[in-house]
Write a protein that binds this DNA or RNA. Sequence first.
DNA 1: CTCCAGGCTTACG
DNA 2: CGTAAGCATGGA
Length: 277
Amino acid sequence: MTMYRIQAPDFNLDLTLSCGQVFRWDKKDQWAGDVNGAVVRAEQEGSELIIESTLDKKSIQDYFRLDDNIEKIYSEIGKDELINSLIRKYHGLRLIRQDPWECLASYICSSNNTIRNIKNSIRLMCECFGNRIEEGYYSFPTPEALAQVELCDMASCRMGFRAPNLRSAATMIADGEFDLNGIKDMSYKKGREELVKVKGVGNKIADCVLLFAFGKLESFPVDTHIEQIMERFYSKSFHDAKKSKKRDTIADFARGYFGRYCGYAQEYLYLEDLEKL
DNA sequence: CTCCAGGCTTACG
DNA sequence: CGTAAGCATGGA
């Protein structure tokens, strides 16, 4: 367990960890969470991150995507006054590079659910089926571990109708029937074709995994919040979409409009819709 | 009570 | 093709 500092210009730790893309960080006096089986404590002082973890500096830089050229990304997605105002308002919000399995499993739990309930279910699941790292911290359960859990035991995690889908995904991956890590080397389109083969994974959840785990920045997940804010501000461009295709139409519009880094635009729009309450 | 939440699958025209 | 119910759970 060592402590060190990382230069992190154009980075906002609070926004990055509280915008809803990850579910297992908590802030008390400082942020604490689990990254790939290691506890990480983090706080920010100006443009410096202070990290306490067994993970090395490079792993943290990779996790927070500090290698992204954020100014270039801002200039490419900054197509209008709305998105530019959100870039100013949420300056330093970055995507995170999550573990693919944790990301997939978490977003399988997200369908027709609230962030509050998703966090709670995942916490219970880690406490029940993960490994204890240190007092109060548990690793995310492996596919192998979850594949062996009885559905009736999984019910204690309050996952409802999502439990069979989650265990099915765990079994497919544990048995080698589905090569999740192989998606890293696929194109966005091909990766999405693969991911939707998993039960309980449609276009939106696939897009979340492609964006948050595999760094496919041209992914633009459209959930109920994105649908609402896009209809409010950009409806002219897709009002004629069929209801069942509306979210696909919005995603395709956003890809064309914001460009190859539209996944970043999605995160700023998403946070704005969350905050509007 | 009803409606909604980082949706998806299945059934039915 | 297209739409709509159903799905567990918890909060507003």
